[in-house]
Design a binder for these strands. Structure first.
Lengths: 330, 330
DNA sequence: CTGAAAGCGCTTACAG
DNA sequence: CTGAAAGCGCTTACAG
């Protein structure tokens, strides 16, 4: 490995001067600069970022920590997109991303702390204790997507879940639906809860009485969860004519179940999802859904974190707008 | 930050002794050990892995570098699964994974080298020069999935593309199909090429003459690529009765196109894909496809890399078996 | 503008 | 078994 010592020797100046030139700090003569840069290039010098980080206390590495009951979360299309976009945004700003997605986040915690990351992006279902762990170690944290306990003093970026669902329900009401089923995700998820509040608000504004029997909870919000929930809803005493599913996976599961019972979508039952994962436009019938911008989520999470790394201590709550995408399932 | 110096002071021994005890090397008395461990715990000591890495020349970090014309590749379901599984496998063995997926890999190269990674997993379309760059810098590399130029002296893990396709074509022939279309991926991809060879071999063994007009190349192997290819194939002079698509995305695209022309799958045209991404079982008709084991790919890539990090210099070519999954599209 | 020196937090021979 | 010392490759005051 070539070091500044080698460069110093070959260019006839001291290590200090080489260091100053290569890190572009302090002062040096043009003459020295030329010599040093030339030698560095010839030797194909690459600074040792570990040594640098030891002194500057900055690794330029960010941890992306995924946490949820779905495992592994990275390969989940929703989160995969966020990770992808975060990697892109971080790269553009000179940071690299280390990914953690242990089955039990508690296992990774020690490891993550020892990696000397400049900051952490925490995605998925975020637990208060985990956040506190990082804060106690003075590691800046930004939260993404879902929050179990929302009262952190930490920046976070989420979708406007309330409004997204509110719009979707209004749209179903506009279509003339009077009874609308709601497939809820895990009970302790703030995101699903906010969607649920949007649902209630929309009903309330149209003076439609809320009936708890149209709300089904699913701990695991995937295809099967959607199928199970749909089964319950269509066998209800007075089944709804439309269903809002908490996410696209459950929406597709619901459609599958409904079709398998010989019913038509949207003829017998209209379905709306949430997320607009890539697959939703490909599936048949294509899914009416609330689009969330995962690319933006990843980018803003990185941007908020870097703000903190640059010394800001403002706590920002970023709520990204959603958009209702109307397709064939309604 | 608590350092070994603090521990030394508080437990009344030297830094050297503390270091030996904490890194469990060299010799020390039981008495010292107890004192030191107690103090370390009380102070909530976390070793500085940067300092350690500087001396041991080992960061316990692995780079996962994704490279392809599809961008970002991490969010592609096929690769997302490989990354997810690699992260899991690495974690279990005490390594962390840093993800790189620049639009232009050349941009990241310098950065990757400076991050002092112990080794690299290169996934996607791998370019010879990239591999040589790493080798020149003495960074162990394992290749995953696709290889543009196969003559590396590097371990790599791929699917048995030839056999997977061979089986699929045989199965179509068994169903009575005499003319089978083939949707090829990018021309310079070894994986697609191997599938193509499997196709030709299967035809040959049944003495069916090969006809180039049934082979369509697609540079971007996605839904649209599949639609375009299918369009060409069904408007051919004597259209095939079945199509093997180079991957599931193109297969689904092909089905969409065929259905949109008012034709039936599999009635008018049978379709087989390759990969068995999650979506293939959900789509309707569900897709007959060649299943690849992405979880295993990620795990074995990590395992092969760690072998090298542990000093092995054997070059292993790991070809993972595939399995034909028969569903509704044939 | 420049170089010697100290130091980041650790590991590793080495002498006792 | 133990401690002093050197060193990993860099940065950063500081004195000249």
């Amino acid at each position: 490995m070539v070091t500044i010592k080698d460069i110093a020797r070959l260019s006839g100046v001291s290590k200090s001067t080489v260091a100053r030139i290569l890190s572009n700090s302090g002062s040096y003569s043009n003459e020295s600069k030329e010599k040093v840069l030339k030698v560095a290039k010839e030797l194909n010098y690459k600074p040792n970022t570990l040594a640098r980080a030891m002194i500057t206390k900055k690794t330029n590495n960010i941890g992306f920590v995924l946490h949820s009951r779905i495992h592994p979360l990275i390969s989940h299309p929703f989160f995969a997109s966020i990770v992808a976009s975060a990697v892109g945004a971080a790269t553009r700003q000179g940071y690299s991303i280390m990914v953690f997605n242990d089955k039990d986040i508690q296992n990774s915690l020690e490891n993550i702390q020892q990696k000397k990351l400049d900051g952490i992006i925490l995605a998925g279902y975020v637990d208060k204790r985990i956040v506190q762990e990082f804060k106690a170690n003075d590691i800046p944290v930004v939260l993404v997507n879902d929050l179990i306990d929302i009262k952190f003093e930490t920046s976070y970026v989420i979708n406007d879940d309330f409004d997204g669902c509110f719009q979707a329900i209004n749209y179903l009401l506009d279509l003339g639906h009077k009874t609308i089923g709601f497939i809820h995700g895990p009970k302790d998820s703030q995101s699903y809860h906010a969607r649920f509040l949007g649902y209630r608000e929309a009903l309330k504004l149209r003076q439609i009485e809320y009936d708890g029997k149209y709300v089904v909870f699913q701990d695991v919000p995937n295809i099967e969860g959607g199928m199970n929930a749909a089964k319950q809803l269509i066998t209800a005493e007075k089944p709804p004519t439309a269903i809002f599913a908490g996410n696209d996976m459950m929406a597709i599961g619901a459609i599958k179940e409904i079709k398998s019972q010989g019913l038509q979508v949207p003829g017998d039952m209209a379905i709306v999802g949430f997320d607009d994962i890539e697959f939703s436009s490909i599936y048949e019938p294509s899914l009416t859904t609330v689009r969330t911008d995962r690319k933006l989520m990843g980018e803003i999470a990185v941007q908020e974190l870097i703000k903190q790394l640059d010394g800001s201590d403002e706590v920002n709550v970023i709520k990204l707008p959603t958009e209702l995408i109307i397709r064939e399932s309604t």
